[in-house]
């Protein structure tokens, strides 16, 4: 050990307050470098947004009804044709989508975190997030297999919210904590209330068969918007990757 090392060691004993300040700076710097929580926000925002087609009811209108089945308009018409041809619009389809998409979401999040850590030299607390997410998704599988209306379409949104809260605790980031509390409130809303009613009160009509869609679009927009803001913030405040 050099004289300098010994002097610094004595310094820790002599001035523990300064040592704690230095520890705080090390911790702050490494957290800022390893922070990449825009990744799960964007990935799961996409997972929720891509669920929309699986939640549109493409069934034929009731006999005697003058309404056309599925969404109006040419793009909606094409979508209706595709989904009627290849998928049966029932809860099992949505459940299978969620199971596959959630697994893919956690795997992609893990891969992107690892790629980023290769560039920055710091890997944030993502391993447990991916593992816990896969376990939570596995716990949802029985709901896929049992053909009863247990699988509320937005259950997966609640699972995402819970895991993001846990991520915020691990990341020790105030901005992420505030954001995930907001997202959890949205997740609670879409799991307990049909937001189509809100749109109806605001005078925004929702087409027949699209009643479930606002319950997905709202959390998807919150996640994608939060992910975009987080990406901009982290690019402007984090040290440049080496």
């Amino acid at each position: 050990m050099t004289d300098g090392d010994m002097a610094r060691e004595d310094g820790i004993r002599a001035d523990p307050g300064a040592a704690l300040d230095q520890v705080g700076r090390w911790q702050g710097d490494v957290r800022a470098r390893g922070r990449a929580w825009w990744i799960p926000l964007v990935v799961f925002g996409a997972v929720v947004a891509l669920a929309v087609p699986a939640h549109v009811d493409y069934s034929d209108p009731a006999p005697g009804s003058t309404e056309s089945g599925g969404p109006d308009g040419s793009i909606g018409g094409v979508l209706t044709l595709v989904w009627r041809t290849y998928l049966t619009p029932n809860p099992e389809v949505a459940a299978v989508y969620w199971t596959v998409a959630m697994v893919a979401g956690f795997v992609v999040t893990g891969v992107l975190y690892r790629r980023r850590s290769a560039a920055t030299g710091v890997q944030g607390p993502v391993g447990w997030f991916v593992r816990t997410g896969l376990w939570a998704t596995a716990a949802m599988v029985p709901l896929v297999l049992v053909p009863v209306p247990l699988f509320r379409t937005t259950t997966a949104v609640a699972v995402i919210a819970i895991l993001l809260i846990a991520l915020a605790v691990k990341e020790k980031d105030r901005a992420l904590t505030v954001f995930v509390v907001l997202f959890a409130a949205v997740a609670l809303l879409v799991n307990t209330y049909n937001t189509e009613n809100l749109l109806y009160r605001l005078g925004v009509p929702v087409g027949r068969g699209w009643g479930d869609v606002p319950n997905l679009v709202l959390p998807a927009l919150v996640l994608l918007g939060g992910g975009l803001l987080a990406w901009i913030r982290q690019r402007s405040t984090s040290p440049r990757p080496r």
Binding site: V23, W26, Q27, V30, R31, R33, G34, S117, T120, G121, V122, Q123, G124, P125, V126, G127, K172, R242
Partner: peptide, 13 residues
Amino acid sequence: TIALEVQRVEFGY
């Protein structure tokens, strides 16, 4: 203290 904050950290950092 640095390693405590993250999952893993690279030698260069």
